[in-house]
Simulated scan of single mutants.
Amino acid sequence: MKKFLTAACALGLLFSAAGCGNDSTATSAKTEKKAEDESKNLDLLKKDFNSITKEEWDKIYISKKDLNGAFEKMTEANSDGEKVVKKVEIKNNTVVVTFNNSDGKSMENGLLAIVFDQFLRTLYKHSSYYDSSEPTIRFVDLDNQLVQESDQPLDTDNETDDSSQK
């Protein structure tokens, strides 16, 4: 349960990092490429994750720089000095989260994977990384033992349906 609370703190850090992003409204002419690299409406991420409406999500855009910064914040120690996440990497439409333990498919890692999957998937799909295809979210431990991998959103409403999981 302690790790679950730590994960909740990590999510808070991620929202804080995303909230510190660049929400520039500069009027100077910029190239289209430069405009794609600027985050927009990150202040909306300061709300409770589940209370953000579809219309608000449609306004949110996260640059690669800001998303990588948020992922970097996830690797920092929490208020108890614990690091829940060792690293987060994006490789070819796959987000790989390495938990800072060697617990494999423990119940705590499984719960963290479920919580993080929805959160990371949503942020990814509103970022510069998104290419209109569902990302694969992969969770491993320090020994690179697979905890959870899914190329579809996890169905947290119907736990008996494993059709969305690999």
Score class of each variant (00 low, 15 high):
residue 141 D to V: 00
residue 136 T to L: 08
residue 60 I to D: 08
residue 122 T to L: 13
residue 85 V to M: 02
residue 58 D to Q: 10
residue 78 N to Q: 00
residue 97 V to G: 07
residue 13 L to C: 10
residue 148 Q to W: 06
residue 138 R to E: 12
residue 154 L to M: 10
residue 119 F to L: 11
residue 149 E to G: 09
residue 81 G to L: 08
residue 34 K to D: 15
residue 44 L to C: 09
residue 128 S to L: 07
residue 13 L to K: 04
residue 141 D to L: 02
residue 13 L to A: 11
residue 40 K to C: 12
residue 5 L to W: 09
residue 159 E to D: 11
residue 159 E to V: 10
residue 95 V to S: 08
residue 62 I to Y: 04
residue 142 L to A: 12
residue 75 T to L: 06
residue 132 S to L: 14
residue 164 S to P: 04
residue 1 M to I: 10
residue 23 D to T: 02
residue 85 V to A: 04
residue 41 N to V: 03
residue 156 T to D: 08
residue 76 E to K: 10
residue 156 T to L: 12
residue 110 G to E: 15
residue 161 D to C: 04
residue 52 I to S: 07
residue 125 K to Q: 15
residue 66 D to E: 00
residue 6 T to H: 07
residue 64 K to E: 15
residue 79 S to K: 08
residue 103 D to A: 03
residue 54 K to H: 09
residue 30 K to A: 14
residue 123 L to V: 02
residue 65 K to Q: 06
residue 84 V to G: 07
residue 123 L to Q: 03
residue 139 F to I: 02
residue 71 F to Q: 05
residue 39 S to G: 02
residue 1 M to F: 09
residue 163 S to N: 05
residue 26 A to M: 09
residue 57 W to Q: 12
residue 50 N to P: 03
residue 104 G to W: 00
residue 82 E to T: 05
residue 140 V to C: 03
residue 122 T to R: 14
residue 11 L to F: 10
residue 111 L to E: 07
residue 22 N to E: 11
residue 145 Q to C: 08
residue 23 D to L: 02
residue 148 Q to I: 05
residue 55 E to Q: 12
residue 20 C to D: 13
residue 36 E to W: 07
residue 3 K to P: 11
residue 131 D to A: 14
residue 75 T to M: 07
residue 15 F to D: 15
residue 59 K to E: 12
residue 74 M to W: 06
residue 10 A to G: 10
residue 112 L to S: 08
residue 151 D to S: 13
residue 35 A to E: 09
residue 39 S to F: 01
residue 13 L to M: 14
residue 93 N to V: 06
residue 78 N to G: 04
residue 2 K to W: 03
residue 127 S to I: 01
residue 73 K to R: 12
residue 40 K to F: 06
residue 24 S to Q: 06
residue 37 D to I: 05
residue 62 I to E: 09
residue 18 A to W: 04
residue 129 Y to V: 03
residue 106 S to L: 00
residue 150 S to D: 07
residue 105 K to W: 03
residue 34 K to M: 11
